[in-house]
Design a protein around this nucleic acid. Sequence first.
DNA 1: CGCCTATTTGAAAACCGTCAAAGTATGTGG
DNA 2: CCACATACTTTGACGGTTTTCAAATAGGCG
Lengths: 226, 226
Amino acid sequence: MQDIKKTGVLKGTFIFSSLNDAEIDELAGLSFERTFAANEFIFHEGDAPDSLYIIAQGQVKVVKYSSQGKEFIVAFFSSGEMFGEVAVFQNRHYPASVQTATETRVLGIRRRDFLSFLADHPEISLKIINVLSGRLRDAQNRLRDLAGERVEQRLARTMLMLSARIGSALPFTRQELADMSGTTTETAIRFMANLKERGVIRSTRGKIIILDEVKLKLLSEGPPQV
Amino acid sequence: MQDIKKTGVLKGTFIFSSLNDAEIDELAGLSFERTFAANEFIFHEGDAPDSLYIIAQGQVKVVKYSSQGKEFIVAFFSSGEMFGEVAVFQNRHYPASVQTATETRVLGIRRRDFLSFLADHPEISLKIINVLSGRLRDAQNRLRDLAGERVEQRLARTMLMLSARIGSALPFTRQELADMSGTTTETAIRFMANLKERGVIRSTRGKIIILDEVKLKLLSEGPPQV
DNA sequence: CGCCTATTTGAAAACCGTCAAAGTATGTGG
DNA sequence: CCACATACTTTGACGGTTTTCAAATAGGCG
Protein backbone atom coordinates (compact mmCIF):
# COMPACT_ATOMS: atom_id res chain seq x y z
CA MET A 1 0.00 0.00 0.00
CA GLN A 2 2.76 2.35 0.89
CA ASP A 3 4.73 1.24 -2.13
CA ILE A 4 1.85 2.04 -4.39
CA LYS A 5 1.87 5.55 -3.06
CA LYS A 6 5.62 5.81 -3.49
CA THR A 7 5.45 4.87 -7.13
CA GLY A 8 2.75 7.44 -7.70
CA VAL A 9 4.90 10.14 -6.16
CA LEU A 10 7.91 9.19 -8.24
CA LYS A 11 5.91 9.06 -11.44
CA GLY A 12 4.68 12.57 -10.73
CA THR A 13 8.14 14.11 -10.72
CA PHE A 14 9.76 15.78 -13.71
CA ILE A 15 12.90 13.80 -13.17
CA PHE A 16 11.48 10.29 -13.01
CA SER A 17 8.33 10.56 -15.09
CA SER A 18 10.08 8.96 -18.06
CA LEU A 19 10.90 5.73 -16.23
CA ASN A 20 8.87 2.59 -16.93
CA ASP A 21 6.94 0.76 -14.21
CA ALA A 22 9.70 -1.69 -13.41
CA GLU A 23 12.23 1.08 -12.99
CA ILE A 24 9.86 3.10 -10.84
CA ASP A 25 9.34 0.04 -8.66
CA GLU A 26 13.06 -0.42 -8.32
CA LEU A 27 13.51 3.18 -7.26
CA ALA A 28 10.56 3.01 -4.89
CA GLY A 29 12.23 0.02 -3.28
CA LEU A 30 15.30 2.10 -2.57
CA SER A 31 13.36 4.96 -1.04
CA PHE A 32 12.17 5.51 2.49
CA GLU A 33 9.32 7.64 3.70
CA ARG A 34 9.34 10.29 6.39
CA THR A 35 6.73 12.70 7.64
CA PHE A 36 7.34 16.03 9.33
CA ALA A 37 5.09 18.48 11.11
CA ALA A 38 5.05 22.12 10.05
CA ASN A 39 8.21 24.12 10.80
CA GLU A 40 10.39 21.10 11.41
CA PHE A 41 13.88 20.90 9.98
CA ILE A 42 14.55 18.01 7.61
CA PHE A 43 18.27 18.70 7.71
CA HIS A 44 20.59 21.55 8.59
CA GLU A 45 23.29 23.32 6.66
CA GLY A 46 26.53 21.50 7.31
CA ASP A 47 25.00 18.07 7.93
CA ALA A 48 26.56 15.10 6.17
CA PRO A 49 24.98 14.37 2.76
CA ASP A 50 23.05 11.32 3.75
CA SER A 51 20.17 11.38 1.30
CA LEU A 52 18.32 13.39 -1.26
CA TYR A 53 14.59 13.94 -0.94
CA ILE A 54 11.52 14.20 -3.09
CA ILE A 55 8.43 15.91 -1.76
CA ALA A 56 5.37 13.67 -1.75
CA GLN A 57 3.10 16.20 -0.13
CA GLY A 58 3.57 19.60 1.45
CA GLN A 59 6.04 22.44 1.04
CA VAL A 60 9.52 23.21 2.30
CA LYS A 61 11.75 26.23 2.34
CA VAL A 62 15.48 26.14 1.77
CA VAL A 63 17.17 28.64 4.07
CA LYS A 64 20.59 30.02 4.85
CA TYR A 65 21.60 32.34 7.67
CA SER A 66 23.89 35.36 7.50
CA SER A 67 26.72 35.89 9.96
CA GLN A 68 24.31 38.01 12.01
CA GLY A 69 21.68 35.29 12.03
CA LYS A 70 19.38 36.89 9.48
CA GLU A 71 17.42 34.33 7.52
CA PHE A 72 17.52 34.18 3.76
CA ILE A 73 15.12 31.95 1.83
CA VAL A 74 17.00 30.35 -1.06
CA ALA A 75 14.02 28.47 -2.49
CA PHE A 76 10.54 27.10 -1.90
CA PHE A 77 9.70 23.61 -3.10
CA SER A 78 6.47 21.65 -3.21
CA SER A 79 5.12 18.27 -4.37
CA GLY A 80 7.23 16.47 -6.92
CA GLU A 81 10.34 18.56 -6.42
CA MET A 82 13.74 17.37 -5.30
CA PHE A 83 16.11 18.86 -2.74
CA GLY A 84 19.39 17.96 -1.09
CA GLU A 85 20.77 16.77 -4.40
CA VAL A 86 23.70 19.17 -4.58
CA ALA A 87 25.22 17.71 -1.45
CA VAL A 88 24.61 14.14 -2.59
CA PHE A 89 26.26 14.60 -5.98
CA GLN A 90 29.29 16.34 -4.58
CA ASN A 91 29.51 14.25 -1.42
CA ARG A 92 29.88 17.40 0.62
CA HIS A 93 27.82 18.78 3.49
CA TYR A 94 24.40 20.24 2.71
CA PRO A 95 24.82 23.87 1.64
CA ALA A 96 21.58 25.03 3.27
CA SER A 97 18.94 23.97 5.77
CA VAL A 98 15.52 22.74 4.76
CA GLN A 99 12.49 23.47 6.91
CA THR A 100 8.91 22.38 6.32
CA ALA A 101 6.31 25.10 5.79
CA THR A 102 3.35 22.78 6.32
CA GLU A 103 2.99 19.17 7.37
CA THR A 104 5.12 17.39 4.79
CA ARG A 105 5.74 13.87 3.59
CA VAL A 106 8.97 13.16 1.74
CA LEU A 107 10.63 10.24 0.03
CA GLY A 108 14.32 9.95 0.83
CA ILE A 109 16.88 8.06 -1.20
CA ARG A 110 20.27 7.33 0.26
CA ARG A 111 23.30 8.70 -1.49
CA ARG A 112 24.87 5.39 -2.46
CA ASP A 113 21.56 3.91 -3.58
CA PHE A 114 20.81 6.87 -5.76
CA LEU A 115 24.22 7.06 -7.34
CA SER A 116 24.15 3.41 -8.32
CA PHE A 117 20.65 3.78 -9.69
CA LEU A 118 21.85 6.75 -11.69
CA ALA A 119 24.75 4.74 -13.10
CA ASP A 120 22.23 2.26 -14.53
CA HIS A 121 19.86 4.94 -15.84
CA PRO A 122 21.91 7.58 -17.61
CA GLU A 123 18.90 9.31 -19.16
CA ILE A 124 17.99 10.47 -15.66
CA SER A 125 21.26 12.38 -15.51
CA LEU A 126 20.09 14.56 -18.35
CA LYS A 127 16.91 15.40 -16.48
CA ILE A 128 18.93 16.31 -13.44
CA ILE A 129 21.21 18.49 -15.51
CA ASN A 130 18.12 20.26 -16.72
CA VAL A 131 16.81 20.85 -13.22
CA LEU A 132 20.17 22.10 -11.98
CA SER A 133 20.52 24.36 -15.01
CA GLY A 134 17.17 25.93 -14.28
CA ARG A 135 18.08 26.50 -10.67
CA LEU A 136 21.40 28.03 -11.62
CA ARG A 137 19.65 30.34 -14.04
CA ASP A 138 17.25 31.44 -11.31
CA ALA A 139 20.05 31.93 -8.83
CA GLN A 140 21.99 34.11 -11.24
CA ASN A 141 18.96 36.24 -11.96
CA ARG A 142 18.44 36.75 -8.28
CA LEU A 143 22.10 37.61 -7.81
CA ARG A 144 21.78 40.31 -10.40
CA ASP A 145 18.65 41.60 -8.71
CA LEU A 146 20.16 41.66 -5.24
CA ALA A 147 23.29 43.36 -6.52
CA GLY A 148 21.75 45.93 -8.79
CA GLU A 149 18.09 46.57 -8.08
CA ARG A 150 16.35 48.61 -5.41
CA VAL A 151 14.19 46.99 -2.80
CA GLU A 152 10.96 47.82 -4.63
CA GLN A 153 12.13 46.12 -7.79
CA ARG A 154 13.43 43.12 -5.88
CA LEU A 155 10.13 42.62 -4.10
CA ALA A 156 8.19 43.03 -7.32
CA ARG A 157 10.43 40.52 -9.07
CA THR A 158 10.16 38.04 -6.24
CA MET A 159 6.39 38.19 -6.47
CA LEU A 160 6.45 37.80 -10.24
CA MET A 161 8.80 34.83 -10.02
CA LEU A 162 6.54 33.18 -7.47
CA SER A 163 3.39 33.86 -9.42
CA ALA A 164 4.96 32.35 -12.53
CA ARG A 165 5.48 29.14 -10.58
CA ILE A 166 2.42 28.88 -8.40
CA GLY A 167 -0.16 31.32 -9.70
CA SER A 168 -1.35 34.73 -8.63
CA ALA A 169 -2.28 33.71 -5.08
CA LEU A 170 0.90 33.68 -3.02
CA PRO A 171 0.68 31.92 0.33
CA PHE A 172 3.41 33.92 2.02
CA THR A 173 3.74 36.37 4.85
CA ARG A 174 5.45 39.71 4.38
CA GLN A 175 8.31 38.40 6.44
CA GLU A 176 8.81 35.46 4.11
CA LEU A 177 8.67 37.73 1.10
CA ALA A 178 11.26 39.96 2.75
CA ASP A 179 13.48 36.97 3.50
CA MET A 180 13.32 35.94 -0.14
CA SER A 181 14.11 39.44 -1.38
CA GLY A 182 16.89 40.35 0.96
CA THR A 183 15.11 43.06 2.91
CA THR A 184 13.28 43.49 6.21
CA THR A 185 9.71 42.81 7.21
CA GLU A 186 8.98 46.49 7.77
CA THR A 187 10.24 47.54 4.38
CA ALA A 188 8.24 44.79 2.72
CA ILE A 189 5.13 45.93 4.58
CA ARG A 190 5.56 49.53 3.51
CA PHE A 191 5.96 48.51 -0.09
CA MET A 192 2.98 46.18 0.03
CA ALA A 193 0.81 48.89 1.55
CA ASN A 194 1.74 51.04 -1.39
CA LEU A 195 0.80 48.30 -3.85
CA LYS A 196 -2.49 47.76 -2.08
CA GLU A 197 -3.41 51.44 -2.39
CA ARG A 198 -2.70 51.33 -6.08
CA GLY A 199 -4.82 48.24 -6.57
CA VAL A 200 -1.92 46.06 -7.69
CA ILE A 201 -2.43 43.48 -4.97
CA ARG A 202 -4.96 42.39 -2.39
CA SER A 203 -3.95 40.64 0.77
CA THR A 204 -5.08 38.87 3.87
CA ARG A 205 -3.01 37.54 6.71
CA GLY A 206 -0.30 35.30 5.24
CA LYS A 207 -1.61 35.53 1.70
CA ILE A 208 -1.04 37.94 -1.18
CA ILE A 209 -3.12 38.03 -4.34
CA ILE A 210 -1.76 39.73 -7.40
CA LEU A 211 -4.52 41.70 -9.10
CA ASP A 212 -2.60 43.58 -11.76
CA GLU A 213 0.40 41.70 -13.07
CA VAL A 214 1.04 44.29 -15.77
CA LYS A 215 1.53 47.09 -13.28
CA LEU A 216 3.71 44.84 -11.17
CA LYS A 217 5.87 44.07 -14.17
CA LEU A 218 6.26 47.77 -14.89
CA LEU A 219 7.36 48.33 -11.32
CA SER A 220 9.87 45.50 -11.50
CA GLU A 221 11.54 47.25 -14.41
CA GLY A 222 12.35 50.19 -12.24
CA PRO A 223 11.32 53.82 -12.38
CA PRO A 224 10.51 55.19 -15.83
CA GLN A 225 13.86 56.06 -17.37
CA VAL A 226 14.71 59.67 -16.77
CA MET B 1 48.54 20.50 -35.64
CA GLN B 2 45.43 22.33 -34.53
CA ASP B 3 43.78 19.09 -33.63
CA ILE B 4 46.70 18.15 -31.43
CA LYS B 5 46.21 21.32 -29.52
CA LYS B 6 42.49 20.73 -29.24
CA THR B 7 42.96 17.33 -27.69
CA GLY B 8 45.39 18.77 -25.20
CA VAL B 9 42.88 21.40 -24.16
CA LEU B 10 40.11 18.85 -23.75
CA LYS B 11 42.27 16.50 -21.75
CA GLY B 12 43.07 19.34 -19.42
CA THR B 13 39.45 19.92 -18.36
CA PHE B 14 37.85 18.43 -15.29
CA ILE B 15 34.91 17.29 -17.34
CA PHE B 16 36.68 15.40 -20.10
CA SER B 17 39.90 14.30 -18.43
CA SER B 18 38.49 10.80 -17.90
CA LEU B 19 37.94 10.13 -21.61
CA ASN B 20 40.33 7.89 -23.52
CA ASP B 21 42.27 9.12 -26.54
CA ALA B 22 39.77 7.91 -29.10
CA GLU B 23 36.94 9.68 -27.32
CA ILE B 24 38.95 12.86 -26.98
CA ASP B 25 39.68 12.73 -30.69
CA GLU B 26 36.03 12.28 -31.45
CA LEU B 27 35.13 15.29 -29.34
CA ALA B 28 37.96 17.37 -30.81
CA GLY B 29 36.54 16.60 -34.22
CA LEU B 30 33.22 18.08 -33.19
CA SER B 31 34.75 21.25 -31.82
CA PHE B 32 35.69 24.48 -33.54
CA GLU B 33 38.22 27.05 -32.49
CA ARG B 34 37.76 30.78 -32.09
CA THR B 35 40.02 33.53 -30.87
CA PHE B 36 38.96 36.83 -29.34
CA ALA B 37 40.81 39.99 -28.43
CA ALA B 38 40.50 41.43 -24.93
CA ASN B 39 37.12 42.87 -24.00
CA GLU B 40 35.26 41.25 -26.87
CA PHE B 41 31.89 39.62 -26.29
CA ILE B 42 31.68 35.91 -27.11
CA PHE B 43 27.90 36.00 -26.84
CA HIS B 44 25.24 38.19 -25.29
CA GLU B 45 22.49 37.47 -22.83
CA GLY B 46 19.43 36.51 -24.82
CA ASP B 47 21.27 35.03 -27.82
CA ALA B 48 20.14 31.65 -29.10
CA PRO B 49 21.98 28.72 -27.45
CA ASP B 50 24.16 27.82 -30.36
CA SER B 51 27.17 26.30 -28.63
CA LEU B 52 28.92 25.74 -25.37
CA TYR B 53 32.53 26.74 -24.94
CA ILE B 54 35.70 25.57 -23.25
CA ILE B 55 38.50 27.99 -22.60
CA ALA B 56 41.79 26.95 -24.18
CA GLN B 57 43.66 30.03 -23.10
CA GLY B 58 42.74 33.31 -21.48
CA GLN B 59 40.00 34.47 -19.12
CA VAL B 60 36.40 35.54 -19.49
CA LYS B 61 33.85 37.19 -17.28
CA VAL B 62 30.18 36.28 -17.20
CA VAL B 63 28.12 39.43 -16.75
CA LYS B 64 24.54 40.51 -16.34
CA TYR B 65 23.12 44.01 -16.34
CA SER B 66 20.54 45.51 -14.00
CA SER B 67 17.55 47.45 -15.25
CA GLN B 68 19.59 50.63 -14.77
CA GLY B 69 22.51 49.26 -16.77
CA LYS B 70 24.74 48.51 -13.81
CA GLU B 71 27.06 45.59 -14.49
CA PHE B 72 27.18 42.54 -12.25
CA ILE B 73 29.91 39.94 -12.67
CA VAL B 74 28.38 36.50 -12.21
CA ALA B 75 31.61 34.56 -12.62
CA PHE B 76 35.18 34.56 -13.90
CA PHE B 77 36.46 31.56 -15.83
CA SER B 78 39.89 30.63 -17.11
CA SER B 79 41.66 27.78 -18.95
CA GLY B 80 39.92 24.45 -18.86
CA GLU B 81 36.56 25.78 -17.71
CA MET B 82 33.26 25.55 -19.51
CA PHE B 83 30.60 28.19 -20.07
CA GLY B 84 27.36 28.56 -21.97
CA GLU B 85 26.30 25.09 -20.90
CA VAL B 86 23.13 26.11 -19.07
CA ALA B 87 21.60 27.49 -22.26
CA VAL B 88 22.66 24.47 -24.27
CA PHE B 89 21.17 21.93 -21.88
CA GLN B 90 17.89 23.76 -21.56
CA ASN B 91 17.73 24.90 -25.17
CA ARG B 92 16.91 28.40 -24.01
CA HIS B 93 18.65 31.70 -24.62
CA TYR B 94 21.92 32.38 -22.83
CA PRO B 95 21.17 33.73 -19.33
CA ALA B 96 24.17 36.10 -19.30
CA SER B 97 26.76 37.68 -21.54
CA VAL B 98 30.35 36.51 -21.71
CA GLN B 99 33.17 38.97 -22.32
CA THR B 100 36.87 38.24 -22.61
CA ALA B 101 39.17 39.79 -20.05
CA THR B 102 42.36 39.11 -22.01
CA GLU B 103 43.04 37.72 -25.47
CA THR B 104 41.26 34.39 -25.35
CA ARG B 105 41.09 31.21 -27.37
CA VAL B 106 38.07 28.97 -26.94
CA LEU B 107 36.83 25.65 -28.24
CA GLY B 108 33.16 25.69 -29.14
CA ILE B 109 30.93 22.66 -29.48
CA ARG B 110 27.57 22.95 -31.14
CA ARG B 111 24.51 22.13 -29.14
CA ARG B 112 23.37 19.14 -31.22
CA ASP B 113 26.86 17.73 -31.47
CA PHE B 114 27.42 17.93 -27.78
CA LEU B 115 24.08 16.45 -26.82
CA SER B 116 24.62 13.44 -29.05
CA PHE B 117 28.13 12.98 -27.72
CA LEU B 118 26.70 13.11 -24.22
CA ALA B 119 24.12 10.47 -25.07
CA ASP B 120 26.97 8.09 -25.96
CA HIS B 121 29.10 8.98 -22.94
CA PRO B 122 26.88 8.99 -19.89
CA GLU B 123 29.75 9.19 -17.42
CA ILE B 124 30.35 12.74 -18.64
CA SER B 125 26.89 13.67 -17.42
CA LEU B 126 27.95 12.93 -13.89
CA LYS B 127 30.91 15.26 -14.23
CA ILE B 128 28.65 17.97 -15.51
CA ILE B 129 26.26 17.44 -12.65
CA ASN B 130 29.22 17.93 -10.35
CA VAL B 131 30.25 21.18 -12.00
CA LEU B 132 26.71 22.54 -11.98
CA SER B 133 26.27 21.54 -8.35
CA GLY B 134 29.39 23.45 -7.41
CA ARG B 135 28.23 26.52 -9.25
CA LEU B 136 24.83 26.34 -7.65
CA ARG B 137 26.44 26.08 -4.24
CA ASP B 138 28.56 29.15 -4.97
CA ALA B 139 25.61 31.08 -6.28
CA GLN B 140 23.57 30.33 -3.18
CA ASN B 141 26.37 31.41 -0.91
CA ARG B 142 26.65 34.66 -2.78
CA LEU B 143 22.90 35.15 -2.59
CA ARG B 144 23.06 34.83 1.15
CA ASP B 145 25.94 37.28 1.26
CA LEU B 146 24.25 39.86 -0.94
CA ALA B 147 21.03 39.58 1.02
CA GLY B 148 22.40 39.55 4.51
CA GLU B 149 25.93 40.91 4.78
CA ARG B 150 27.30 44.44 4.80
CA VAL B 151 29.48 45.72 2.00
CA GLU B 152 32.70 45.14 3.93
CA GLN B 153 31.91 41.51 4.53
CA ARG B 154 30.83 41.01 0.93
CA LEU B 155 34.05 42.46 -0.41
CA ALA B 156 36.13 40.41 2.00
CA ARG B 157 34.26 37.25 1.03
CA THR B 158 34.64 37.96 -2.66
CA MET B 159 38.39 38.30 -2.22
CA LEU B 160 38.58 35.11 -0.19
CA MET B 161 36.54 33.19 -2.75
CA LEU B 162 38.82 34.42 -5.52
CA SER B 163 41.99 33.66 -3.63
CA ALA B 164 40.78 30.12 -2.95
CA ARG B 165 40.46 29.62 -6.69
CA ILE B 166 43.41 31.51 -8.11
CA GLY B 167 45.80 32.29 -5.31
CA SER B 168 46.56 35.37 -3.25
CA ALA B 169 47.37 37.62 -6.21
CA LEU B 170 44.10 38.85 -7.64
CA PRO B 171 44.31 40.42 -11.09
CA PHE B 172 41.27 42.66 -10.69
CA THR B 173 40.53 46.34 -10.55
CA ARG B 174 38.51 47.83 -7.74
CA GLN B 175 35.69 48.31 -10.15
CA GLU B 176 35.64 44.63 -11.04
CA LEU B 177 35.72 43.68 -7.39
CA ALA B 178 32.81 46.05 -6.81
CA ASP B 179 30.88 44.53 -9.71
CA MET B 180 31.37 41.07 -8.23
CA SER B 181 30.29 42.17 -4.77
CA GLY B 182 27.27 44.24 -5.65
CA THR B 183 28.61 47.62 -4.64
CA THR B 184 30.16 50.69 -6.28
CA THR B 185 33.73 51.44 -7.27
CA GLU B 186 34.05 54.23 -4.72
CA THR B 187 32.88 52.08 -1.85
CA ALA B 188 35.28 49.33 -2.86
CA ILE B 189 38.13 51.83 -2.98
CA ARG B 190 37.36 53.15 0.48
CA PHE B 191 37.31 49.66 1.90
CA MET B 192 40.51 48.66 0.13
CA ALA B 193 42.29 51.78 1.40
CA ASN B 194 41.32 50.69 4.88
CA LEU B 195 42.72 47.20 4.32
CA LYS B 196 45.93 48.61 2.93
CA GLU B 197 46.47 50.74 6.03
CA ARG B 198 45.99 47.71 8.20
CA GLY B 199 48.46 45.67 6.18
CA VAL B 200 45.87 43.13 5.07
CA ILE B 201 46.48 43.72 1.37
CA ARG B 202 48.94 45.36 -0.98
CA SER B 203 47.92 46.63 -4.36
CA THR B 204 49.06 48.11 -7.61
CA ARG B 205 46.96 49.30 -10.49
CA GLY B 206 44.64 46.46 -11.47
CA LYS B 207 46.09 43.97 -9.03
CA ILE B 208 45.46 43.12 -5.39
CA ILE B 209 47.70 40.95 -3.26
CA ILE B 210 46.36 39.43 -0.08
CA LEU B 211 48.98 39.62 2.65
CA ASP B 212 47.04 38.50 5.69
CA GLU B 213 44.35 35.99 4.90
CA VAL B 214 43.59 35.39 8.57
CA LYS B 215 42.66 39.00 9.19
CA LEU B 216 40.61 39.02 6.03
CA LYS B 217 38.72 35.95 7.19
CA LEU B 218 37.97 37.63 10.49
CA LEU B 219 36.62 40.64 8.67
CA SER B 220 34.45 38.48 6.46
CA GLU B 221 32.76 37.09 9.56
CA GLY B 222 31.49 40.50 10.46
CA PRO B 223 32.12 42.73 13.44
CA PRO B 224 32.97 40.94 16.71
CA GLN B 225 29.62 39.97 18.18
CA VAL B 226 28.45 42.56 20.63
C1' DC C 1 55.10 62.84 -23.75
C1' DG C 2 50.16 62.41 -23.92
C1' DC C 3 46.08 59.91 -23.46
C1' DC C 4 43.20 56.66 -21.31
C1' DT C 5 41.94 54.29 -17.47
C1' DA C 6 42.34 53.36 -12.65
C1' DT C 7 42.54 55.31 -8.18
C1' DT C 8 41.49 58.66 -4.79
C1' DT C 9 38.98 62.07 -1.90
C1' DG C 10 35.17 64.88 -0.20
C1' DA C 11 30.56 66.26 0.66
C1' DA C 12 25.70 65.63 0.50
C1' DA C 13 21.74 62.96 0.30
C1' DA C 14 18.97 58.92 -0.42
C1' DC C 15 17.63 54.57 0.76
C1' DC C 16 16.65 51.45 3.87
C1' DG C 17 17.41 49.26 8.31
C1' DT C 18 16.58 49.56 13.20
C1' DC C 19 13.92 50.24 17.20
C1' DA C 20 9.73 50.78 19.60
C1' DA C 21 4.99 50.33 20.20
C1' DA C 22 0.43 49.15 19.05
C1' DG C 23 -3.26 47.06 16.50
C1' DT C 24 -5.39 42.76 14.45
C1' DA C 25 -6.22 38.06 12.77
C1' DT C 26 -6.03 33.05 14.05
C1' DG C 27 -6.17 29.25 16.76
C1' DT C 28 -6.24 27.01 21.29
C1' DG C 29 -7.62 25.76 25.75
C1' DG C 30 -10.58 26.21 29.37
C1' DC D 1 -18.14 30.11 23.42
C1' DC D 2 -15.03 33.27 25.25
C1' DA D 3 -10.44 34.59 26.75
C1' DC D 4 -5.95 34.47 25.81
C1' DA D 5 -1.65 33.64 23.51
C1' DT D 6 0.75 33.94 19.34
C1' DA D 7 2.04 35.53 15.15
C1' DC D 8 1.24 38.73 11.57
C1' DT D 9 0.60 43.44 10.23
C1' DT D 10 1.04 48.32 10.76
C1' DT D 11 3.00 52.97 11.78
C1' DG D 12 6.37 56.52 13.07
C1' DA D 13 10.79 58.43 13.96
C1' DC D 14 15.62 58.23 13.62
C1' DG D 15 20.05 57.31 11.94
C1' DG D 16 23.57 54.81 9.59
C1' DT D 17 25.38 52.73 5.61
C1' DT D 18 26.09 53.27 1.14
C1' DT D 19 25.31 55.60 -3.17
C1' DT D 20 25.78 59.52 -5.93
C1' DC D 21 28.07 63.35 -7.93
C1' DA D 22 32.07 65.96 -8.81
C1' DA D 23 36.67 66.78 -9.35
C1' DA D 24 41.49 65.77 -8.91
C1' DT D 25 45.57 62.68 -9.02
C1' DA D 26 48.38 59.04 -10.72
C1' DG D 27 49.94 54.94 -13.33
C1' DG D 28 50.85 52.62 -17.74
C1' DC D 29 50.92 52.10 -22.73
C1' DG D 30 51.64 53.68 -27.43
